[in-house]
Amino acid sequence: MTHLLDVDGIPRPQVERLLELAVEMREARAARRSPDLLERETIATCFYEASTRTRVSFELAAKALGATTVDLAIAGSSVGKGESLVDTMRTLERTGVTVAVLRHGSAGAPWLVARETGLRVVNAGDGAHAHPTQALLDALTLREALGTLDGARVVIVGDVAHSRVARSNLHLLGTLGARLRVAGPPAFVAGFDAWPGVEVATTLDGALDGADAVMTLRVQLERDAGSGISSVADYARAWGITPERLERARPGAPLLHPGPTNEGVELSAEAANGPRSLIGRQVENGVPVRMAVLATVCGAVA
């Protein structure tokens, strides 16, 4: 694996290996014994869209494994002068960068960089398309909570149509054996009845019925705000996750959210901070999962 562009098509044994590796990395990091696997690598975080947890956790993951890191500060770089993505990435390559961790607003941007440069590319989120490391950390978090994903009913609630997190989770959780259901207002789930193996629920109660785990998505107020929903308040009433609504799911079914949360919109503060919430656990798994990904992409582990 020289790039991690998408989780679509990664065979199950390779996914299992990545998750095992993430657990090893987590243990090593907790013991402050992370191996210097990447001391020859120079890893650039290139975030063309804002991010806190993804960017920071990639940087910490790279540093933990001994890599040299550099952050492409978009605002202060040639990008602001109109330099094209390919030219910027070629420039980084010439300066000695070996791995680009790329977040970009355009679906497919990492494919372009992978084709046109010699960089190893890790997709840290491209448009509405994919967010592979988020799906990996979600899979790890869920699997540790449930024991196994085989046969588990996982429900994703929210703006699935515009969500790279949802798409990557549909691929990856499906690979790991989960039964998947998506739910939201019609514009948020349009077309997903044709996604292989996915069922679409049209009410929250119907969606939560029998769910082993629930993932709710951020209402992207900054992107297409309001499109497809009548109002944020209506959305919160119909689709917001509260401890009471969660009672429809299986007893103890955990709640996930990729963050950052809009408390009071897609989930209540009580749900976000309640006993079923794995949101903190997701963030904690972010660094070790990204350590596993970087080590794998760089060929530093078997």
Binding site: A107, A128, H129, A161, G191, A194, W195
Partner: peptide, 13 residues
């Protein structure tokens, strides 16, 4: 073109 490929690729159909 709208359809399963556009949906999978996250591109507006």
């Amino acid at each position: 073109r709208a359809g399963p490929t556009a949906l999978r690729l996250g591109l507006t159909g």
